[in-house]
Design a binder for these strands. Structure first.
Length: 111
DNA sequence: AACATGACGTCGC
DNA sequence: AGCGACGCCATGT
């Protein structure tokens, strides 16, 4: 699979997400330049399971702060547990105070 | 090479 | 405000 570097880019950014913070697929996509490739980010995450080092995909949610990929985790409840373990409150599969814990790579990593 | 799919996002109704 | 459809780009078959 060529362009695997794209995935690595995504993984790298996700790994840079500080604990207790979350970001959106679109933000990562935009940071990588594929602002319209939000799906690609999610697709990359799909492959993140089983790679090394592990990627904190639980810190990545959709634009609504919804844990869309929650069902993709081994135990579908692991995601919110990990988030809760980092201080992120999750309710009804969505992040509480999303904007408060939001972490935008385009800003935090500020090129 | 073409078709179908996907952990999203945005526009339209 | 809630639901449906289209668009984008890369991957796999």
């Amino acid at each position: 699979m060529p362009d695997k570097d794209f995935y690595d880019q995504v993984y790298q950014v996700v790994r840079l997400i500080p604990a207790g913070r979350v970001t959106s697929y679109g933000a990562i996509a935009a940071y990588l330049g594929a602002k319209s490739g939000s799906r690609m980010v999610g697709y990359a995450m799909n492959n993140c399971t089983g790679i090394e080092p592990p990627v904190p995909a639980h810190r990545v949610v959709n634009r609504n702060g919804l844990l869309t990929g929650k069902f993709h985790f081994h135990p579908n409840s692991l995601m919110e547990e990990m988030l809760a373990s980092e201080g992120i409150k999750v309710e009804d599969d969505k992040v509480i105070d999303f904007k408060a814990v939001y972490w935008d790579p385009s800003i935090e990593l500020a090129l």
